[in-house]
């Protein structure tokens, strides 16, 4: 199990961070995900299915996290909520201010783009291009047919093509 953690720890942490934008939440959820994996690993019959199975648990835990946050938002005033990506998390000490500004802008653009996608489009896009899963794996993670995954991926990429500013940032072009 410790070997599996060693292999997938960073991938899962990053996957959760992309969806929460918060380091502490990402660390806590990663811990929860591996505890769940630890508890249920014996039930996994086909070891070849481990990666999709792991991401499926991770996607569900992140969705639970968002539901909890939504529910709590009823009772906690907006001024007291800790919403939004914690940009200070991104400020690595060995980076120039320019790098930090570019990263901040990039993250802002990515977040804005993600909000233009439907839930399923967003999930397949992130799993494919940010978490680097294949179509067949995404199909298993989300329990949807491969054609459904491709259709939503197609729509998401089409919307991505319209994001000129984000693409400019990715290509390193001057604004």
């Amino acid at each position: 199990m410790s070997e599996l953690i060693g292999v997938f720890r960073e991938d899962i942490y990053r996957m959760v961070y992309y969806r929460t934008g918060n380091r502490m939440d990402a660390e806590d959820l990663t811990q929860e995900i591996f505890l769940k994996v630890f508890d249920n690993l014996k039930g996994l019959k086909d070891t070849g299915m481990f990666r999709p199975w792991l991401y499926r648990i991770a996607v569900n835990r992140v969705n639970d996290h968002h539901r909890r946050k939504k529910f709590l938002s009823f009772f906690i005033p907006a001024s007291e909520r800790e919403d939004g990506p914690e940009m200070e998390d991104m400020q690595h000490t060995d980076e120039s201010v320019l790098d930090q500004v570019i990263k901040k802008e990039f993250w802002h653009e990515v977040s804005a783009f993600m909000h233009k996608l439907s839930k399923l489009e967003r999930e397949v896009f992130q799993l494919r291009f940010m978490d680097h899963l294949g179509i067949a794996e995404i199909s298993k993670v989300l329990d949807r047919g491969e054609s459904t995954v491709k259709t939503h991926l197609y729509r998401a990429v089409k919307k991505f093509q319209a994001e000129e500013h984000l693409i400019g940032l990715i290509r390193g072009e001057e604004p």
Binding site: Y17, Y18, E27, Q31, D89, M90, H92
Partner: peptide, 11 residues
């Protein structure tokens, strides 16, 4: 963009 993970996974 992702900051480094600062905790270890405890089982």
């Amino acid at each position: 963009v992702v900051p480094p993970m600062q905790t270890t996974i405890m089982l």
